[in-house]
């Protein structure tokens, strides 16, 4: 029986390259489809039912990892990646195979040997295969949690994007919030409570019922004899008051 495979990579020349190398190393392999993004890869795997899929980790639409997670029950997977420190570390500990671009002939031969052996045992991957992919994804996702990064504000007929790193502090104003940067203030409709849940708590500290400060923008923290605290910022002239319940944040400063 002929083994079928699909290739997925958003860069056409790289897919060509892999296909021609595979043609030399494993001439009996039937390449039954090429995908330029994650969606196409999923469709191809669904429609053509290959035994093996070579997936680029970084692809537009749906990334290679996500594709693998969805199809792990039906086909064997070999990942390709240009350089991904985390990914490579993760792969090395797992049962999945990976190729680093540019793919060398020797490395591809090894991968092919391994795939042939696995396919000889079973054309379908074992039941725990999807679990391995799942665990791998968990490992790779830890490094970027989804905190709020951009704030959209109305600005002269357009929408301005303010990076949270630029923000000096947020100040509550009724149900709205004033976003204060070094040069200007803008009003957004999010409440300060919603913001405090969405911002990275290691970079943004609540210092008052109605204020959140960007820690990297703090110049100096003053504590008065009476135990009240005030913050001087690097790019603003006004002082921010730290109310008593939040003073402990600055104990070690």
């Amino acid at each position: 029986m002929q083994i079928k495979a699909i290739l997925a990579d958003d860069e056409e020349h790289l897919i060509d390259y892999l296909e021609s190398l595979l043609g030399e190393v494993w001439p009996q392999l039937a390449i039954c489809g090429r995908a330029k993004n994650g969606h196409e890869a999923l469709e191809l795997i669904e429609g053509r039912r290959p035994h093996l899929a070579f997936l680029d980790v970084r692809m537009p639409g749906v990334c290679g990892m996500e594709v693998a997670r969805r199809v792990a029950k039906s086909c064997w997977i070999v990942f390709t990646t240009a350089y991904d420190h985390y990914a490579v570390n993760a792969f090395e500990s797992g049962a999945l195979d990976y190729l680093i671009k540019p793919v060398s002939r020797e490395r591809l031969e090894k991968a092919v040997e391994r795939a042939k052996k696995q396919l000889a045992v079973s054309l379908n991957p074992p039941w725990y295969f999807s679990e391995i992919v799942e665990r791998l994804m968990g490992k790779m996702e830890q490094k970027h949690q989804d905190f709020l990064q951009w704030i959209r504000v109305q600005h002269g007929g357009g929408v301005k994007l303010i990076s949270v790193e630029e923000v000096c502090y947020f100040r509550a104003e009724d149900k709205y919030t004033v976003v204060v940067t070094g040069g200007e203030e803008s009003l957004i409709s999010k409440s300060i409570r919603e913001l405090s849940e969405e911002l990275d708590p290691s970079k943004f500290w609540r210092i008052h019922r109605g204020a959140i400060v960007n820690v990297s923008q703090i110049d100096k923290v003053n504590r008065s004899v009476t135990g009240r605290g005030s913050i001087r910022l690097k790019e603003r002239r006004e002082l921010l008051v730290v109310s008593r319940p939040y003073l402990h944040l600055f104990k070690q400063m």
């Binding site: 060509d16 390259y17 970084r58 350089y83 680093i100 540019p102 793919v103």
Partner: peptide, 13 residues
């Protein structure tokens, strides 16, 4: 590195 190696891979091909 991604830029570097992807570019080199393309050139190689």
């Amino acid at each position: 590195p991604h830029f570097l190696f992807n570019t080199l891979s393309n050139i190689l091909r």
